[in-house]
Amino acid sequence: MRGAWGHGLRTVGDTTLSIVGRIGAVVLFLGQILRHSGTSFRRFGLVIREVYFAGVQSLIIILVSGLFVGMVLGLQGFETLQSYGSSESVGVLVALSLMRELGPVVSALLFASRAGSAITAEIGLMKATEQLSAMEMMAVNPLARVVAPRFWGGVISLPLLAVLFAAMGILGGFLVTVVMLGVDSGAFWSQMQAAVDFHHDILNGVIKSLVFGVAVSAIATFEGYEAPPTAEGVSGATTRTVVSSSLAILALDLLLTAFMMKGWN
């Protein structure tokens, strides 16, 4: 094949192969992290430190965004449901959308840009300043000492953050619809309780956020660990972390939702 067509086709092929190759590399890297996770659990202080940096420091942004998202859902839902004369169902709308989708997905997206990029930058810079090589010289495996604790810190933090996001959102919806717009408080909670199922809605949401936690943490640590050891390389890796983990979150969400819906009938 020659000419512009051949060139274009080759570019498509190259891109596809490199994307597939990168996904494969992330999965292999995840396997390596799991193999070297022993140290993280023997010295759990390392993981607690990372839970502080990834989880506690993301609390403010998660809580505030959760409150705002819940308030907006309440306002929008009230506006639409009122025209069907069922404004009490707004509680169901807010709770189900937060629990099933928005809680896990939005908090994972926020987590990827707030904590994921920080993890990448930190590990990338450690590599650029040859701290990782220095560790290897001292017979300390950087995968076990640096990467695995950050991975587990992210995996532990994200489900907690997603649950807090959903709880805060429901509180926001309650404030807007019950306190401001005058929906009956009893109907708001009782309709919500009748519609939300513990296994199908709440547990599935937590499972989703757990999967997202694994994906975001694996991508963030991978990009940092594989970043070219230059200033440019680290900045590029940070950007790639945010872009590819956002895409991974949305794609995994589609897959997980499809599987879980099958169970719901």
Partner: peptide, 25 residues
Amino acid sequence: LNLWVGFFVLLGFLAFLMLAFKVGN
């Protein structure tokens, strides 16, 4: 550090319990 992480984890579990009992059935 441990205090903050403990607070965070506790808050997360409280939110989960609230979702399970107050919001869910």
